[in-house]
Design a protein around this nucleic acid. Structure first.
Lengths: 126, 126
DNA sequence: TCCTATTTGAAAACAAAATATCATTAAGCG
DNA sequence: CGCTTAATGATATTTTGTTTTCAAATAGGA
């Protein structure tokens, strides 16, 4: 059976407290506040099992490590900040997607990613 | 000065003949038809210089190697086939993007990727 | 044609994310 | 409280894409 450990609980808490998708490293940093000597291997193991049981979902972006966010959210997309590298949730979905699909092609999913500066970074000069 | 070699010319030809984005491996396979013992290192080197002089542009997708396509096309997006792994060009752009960006965030680009079956693969059973 | 600097191909090296290994720790049932 | 075994942490290993190295080949000016 799966044992309840402080490490696993700490990682679950991180997802409860954060709505934006997190990389394994970000998860590690946050969970370490509860379990200081937590190892990255445990993060990867836990993230894998949470992902398999469906409580979190992977969010992939080009050239970046896979991030994870809590499952069960409404369909949404993401904003990737070019300065701080963090990813944020964006409500809604653009229109007219189906019309773009070429004749004969069958769509079964889509991904939309906006790049720019997040609220914090937009105010900074450089 | 930059020398004109059969390898470089063969790689340039590949981009002239193909409109969809190609991975370095795909470029290698195609260019090998002209230059049989072409090496992958030369493909990477050439792709890098063509990319720097602006004649081709990188196309990134999550979890996949960077692809490249000829520059100077109209704004467009891509379709990624889940079965054969090839990526295709899709004309147009969805509407209502700006409205999705949260208050205070500044957008400077976006990426849109549709997944499914390409025309060839849509007809196949499995 | 000769010469030199650039380019090439093969293989080694590198980078970064993810997974595996293994001795140690500890969850939780009896 | 013991005991068994899953979970952990540190580290090694794997994986995959890309870059570097270096001897050999070659473009192209003299």
């Amino acid at each position: 059976m799966e044992r309840r450990t402080v490490q696993r609980e700490a990682i679950k808490q991180v997802f409860k407290k954060t709505s934006r998708p997190l990389t394994p490293q970000e998860i590690l940093e946050r969970a370490k506040q509860q379990v200081p000597n937590l190892g990255i291997a445990t993060v990867y193991r836990t993230v894998k099992s949470l992902s398999e049981d469906g409580s979190i979902v992977p969010v992939d972006a080009p050239g970046e490590p896979t991030r994870f966010e809590g499952a069960g959210k409404k369909h949404h997309h993401h904003f990737s900040c070019r300065r701080c590298g963090r990813m944020f949730e964006m409500a809604g979905c653009p229109a007219g997607i189906a019309a773009m699909v070429p004749e004969g092609f069958v769509m079964d999913g889509h991904e939309f990613l906006v790049y720019g500066r997040c609220k914090d970074c937009a105010q900074l000069a450089e």
